[in-house]
C-alpha cells in the first residue's frame, strides 16, 4: 500500500478482512507467502513489524473500569515507552481528541464514539507508521462516524501516517477513496472507488458491494 495515504479494504462479511488484520498483527501465522511491514517480515521479526503498527480492533478492547490515562499508560508500557514518554504523549493524543480533561474518568463513562477516539489515541501513542482500523466505526452513529473519519484524514495529512482500514459500509467511502475490493479472501479489484464502480458497471458503491456479496454466497 502507498505510504502517507489511506487505503480501504471493502468487502462483505467473511471476505477475509479481519483474517488479513490478524495476519498483519501476528495473531495468525501465514501458511504461505510473506508479509512485510516497512521492511520487517512478520514471521521472522514480529517485534520490529509490530512496532510499526497501531491497531484499533473491531471489538472494543479498552479496560472499562480503568481511567483513560491508565488505559493509555498500560498500552505505552507494553510498547516499551518510559513513564515520562507515556505522560507527554498521552496528553498530546488526548488533547487532539478533546479528551484530556476527562483523563481521570473511567472509560465506562464515555459514549461509544469517545471510546473509539480513546482507542485511536492509544493506537497512536507509540507513534506507529501504519494505523490499522478494523471496522472501527462499528456501532457508532452517523455523526460519530463522520467525526472519526475527519480525525483520521487530518492524521494522514499532518503526520504522514499510513492508514489501512476495513469496512463493510460503502457509505463511509468517498468517491476518490483508494480501495481494495475483497471477496472470499481474494482481491477482486484495486483503485479509486469511483473507477471500480464504473468498471464493474455498478450504480454506486453499495451496488458494487451487493454484487460482491451475492457472488460470495450464491443462493
Amino acid at each position: 500500500m502507498p505510504s502517507n495515504g489511506k487505503l480501504a479494504l471493502l468487502g462483505p462479511n467473511g471476505a477475509g478482512k479481519t483474517t488479513l488484520f490478524s495476519l498483519l498483527t501476528c495473531l495468525l501465522r501465514p501458511s504461505a507467502g510473506s508479509i512485510s511491514i516497512f521492511g520487517h517480515d512478520v514471521t521472522t521479526s514480529p517485534g520490529a513489524a509490530l512496532a510499526q503498527l497501531g491497531v484499533v480492533f473491531q471489538q472494543p478492547t479498552l479496560d472499562l473500569d480503568l481511567s483513560l490515562s491508565q488505559n493509555l499508560a498500560y498500552h505505552g508500557a507494553i510498547q516499551g515507552l518510559s513513564p515520562r514518554e507515556v505522560r507527554s504523549r498521552s496528553q498530546q493524543e488526548l488533547e487532539r481528541f478533546g479528551l484530556w480533561q476527562r483523563r481521570h474518568e473511567p472509560v465506562r463513562k464515555l459514549n461509544a464514539g469517545h471510546r473509539r477516539r480513546v482507542e485511536i489515541a492509544r493506537a497512536l501513542l507509540h507513534q506507529p507508521r501504519l494505523l490499522l482500523l478494523d471496522e472501527a466505526t462499528t456501532g457508532l452513529d452517523l455523526a460519530s462516524r463522520v467525526s472519526l473519519h475527519d480525525h483520521i484524514r487530518s492524521l494522514v495529512r499532518e503526520r504522514g501516517l499510513s492508514v489501512l482500514w476495513t469496512t463493510h459500509l460503502p457509505e463511509e467511502l468517498e468517491p476518490d477513496e483508494q480501495v481494495v475490493l475483497l471477496q472470499s479472501g481474494t482481491i477482486q479489484g484495486q483503485g479509486q472507488l469511483s473507477q471500480l464502480v464504473a468498471a464493474a458497471g455498478a450504480e454506486d458503491a453499495r451496488a458494487l458491494l451487493l454484487s460482491l456479496s451475492s457472488q460470495a454466497s450464491p443462493s
Binding site: 498483527t25 501476528c26 495473531l27 514480529p46 517485534g47 480492533f57 478492547t61 507494553i78
Partner: peptide, 14 residues
C-alpha cells in the same frame, strides 16, 4: 473472549 487480550499480544515485546 472480550478481545482485550489482543492489546497485549500486539505489543512488540516477545
Amino acid at each position: 473472549e472480550m478481545g482485550s487480550m489482543r492489546v497485549l499480544l500486539t505489543s512488540p515485546m516477545p
